[in-house]
């Protein structure tokens, strides 16, 4: 099965994407990819949370604000989509991700992860990650009518963008109760039940978008199906130096 692993760090102490220190750490990630290439379905680093735009569906039309969904020093800095047979295998992978030693890796079983364009985006466009947030309704997980209804809405949204190739990938995750957080401290693996921070954890799923600029990315993300009260945070992916 597939798992979405969200990588978290404390932005006050973690090196900024693009800095020398950040680039120096990339070797650890390259080594992780080399060791586990077959298990890595998708992955990307994110720019910092102060580059985020958040769309809140509390009103109609939705409220668009600068900044992340949850104002916190602890923020998501990237993601992996991992293929693993069991949670134990996913934990084995997560513990090897370098960020586990300073931050945390939150693992969520995916209902599915879909590559819509074979990795290709719209010409000349940048990549953006759209993370869905908001309070989880009880009895809205996979297998319920509420889930089926939302899944149909998402399928229609994806289909509407097929020609424009503005959605390159996307995934749906199981409810928050199924999350597991993995950290490594002094060589010891710490596995705990639940997400790292309940208030700032993805609910439902995420999309990788391809859009020329922020306005276009936000306009697209605001069309992502959402329950009333839900929110979508849009953040540019960080482009790694070539080589």
């Amino acid at each position: 099965m597939q798992y979405v692993a969200l990588l978290g760090t404390d932005e006050r102490t973690a090196p900024a994407p693009g800095s020398d220190e950040y680039n120096a750490n990339l070797g650890g990630y390259a080594a992780f990819s080399e060791r586990n290439g077959a298990a890595i379905v998708d992955a990307a680093p994110l720019q910092r949370s102060d580059t985020a735009t958040t769309i809140r569906h509390t009103d109609d039309p939705p409220l668009v604000t600068d900044g992340p969904y949850a104002e916190s020093a602890e923020a998501i800095g990237g993601y992996y989509v991992l293929e693993a047979e069991t949670l134990d295998d996913a934990i084995e992978l997560a513990r090897q991700i370098p960020v586990a030693e300073v931050g945390w890796v939150s693992i969520r079983p995916a209902v599915g992860w879909w590559d819509y364009t074979g990795g290709e985006g719209a010409e000349g466009a940048d990549r953006w990650l759209a993370l869905m947030y908001g309070k989880e309704e009880p009895d809205s997980g996979p297998g319920t009518d509420a889930w089926a209804e939302m899944a149909a809405a998402h399928q229609a949204f994806v289909a509407s963008q097929a020609d424009a190739r503005t959605i390159t990938a996307g995934g749906a995750v199981h409810p928050l109760d199924t999350a597991t957080t993995v950290r490594v401290r002094d060589g010891e693996v710490l596995v705990t039940d639940g997400p790292y921070a309940e208030s700032a954890e993805v609910t439902g799923g995420l999309y990788v978008l391809s859009a020329a600029d922020r306005d276009a990315a936000v306009a697209l993300a605001s069309r992502i199906p959402s329950r009333p009260g839900g929110a979508v945070e849009v953040r540019p992916l960080h482009v790694l130096p070539a080589g």
């Binding site: 099965m1 693993a84 047979e85 069991t86 949670l87 134990d88 996913a90 693992i107 079983p109 997980g141 996979p142 199981h174 409810p175 109760d177 199924t178 999350a179 597991t180 039940d193």
Partner: peptide, 10 residues
């Protein structure tokens, strides 16, 4: 039990 099933605890 739902987590064991959904998250794939072996």
């Amino acid at each position: 039990k739902a987590k064991i099933r959904a998250a794939g605890i072996p």
